[in-house]
Nucleic acid binder design. Structure first.
Length: 196
DNA sequence: GCGACAG
DNA sequence: ATCTTGTCGC
């Protein structure tokens, strides 16, 4: 990563959730900005374009990056941090989509993966809030984080301008009820409903 | 060569 | 990610 530093959690006021859905050769991106805490939506933007690249593990930015950039251009709000559905530095080359887009945005970003791309982690208690370091080739690249008791963990890693502990704490704080962090859930819903 | 593999 | 009904469990 380019920068590894704590997020000032006490100063966070707005959090953005980012997601992309693919339908019939078309990709639609959604960004939902919510208050923190509270998770009340203050802005939602959508963008679509022909899906430009196939899905290849490790190269997600080539597939989802272009339509996301279109969406970023439409955004008026200035979120303190962006949450992505995908990896940050928990990537074979340490530059997952959250890291890549963070450089583009020059803002703090966090990768929130639902399944593992690389790395391993040890025993993880069932209780919400439990975390285990995610290690790859001797490097700690993130954490497996239980955002809901007895559910599969999320895999959290810094994207840009963030460190592992504060990234994990923010994501946990953004997951009051469901496994998926609230901003990402909202973005997922917004992106999933194409308005043809 | 074999296995693994975000969304 | 997407294709898809009902169903088990809190």
């Amino acid at each position: 990563m380019i920068s590894d530093r704590p997020i000032d959690l006490g100063a966070v006021r707005l959090v953005a959730g980012v997601d992309v859905s693919v339908k019939n050769e078309e990709s639609q991106a959604a960004i939902v900005v919510v208050t923190y805490p509270g998770f009340l939506p203050v802005e939602t933007v959508l963008a679509r374009c022909p899906t430009p690249f196939p899905y290849i593990p490790g190269l997600l930015s080539f597939r989802e990056g272009p339509v996301l950039e279109e969406a970023f251009d439409k955004l008026k709000a200035e979120p303190d941090v962006f949450l992505f559905d995908g990896m940050g530095i928990a990537h074979p080359r340490r530059i997952g989509i959250a890291s890549h887009m963070g450089l583009w945005l020059d803002r703090p970003t966090i990768g929130c993966g639902k399944t593992l791309l690389c790395g391993r982690y040890g025993p993880l208690p069932d209780e919400k809030g439990s975390a285990a370091p995610l290690v790859d080739k001797g490097e700690t690249i993130g954490v497996a984080l239980r955002t809901r008791t007895a559910k599969n963990p999320m895999f959290i890693s810094p994207g840009h301008l963030a460190d592992i502990p504060t990234a994990a704490e923010l994501v946990l704080n953004c997951s009051p009820k469901y496994r998926l962090p609230e901003p990402i859930r909202l973005a997922h819903n917004a992106a999933g409903q194409f308005g043809q």
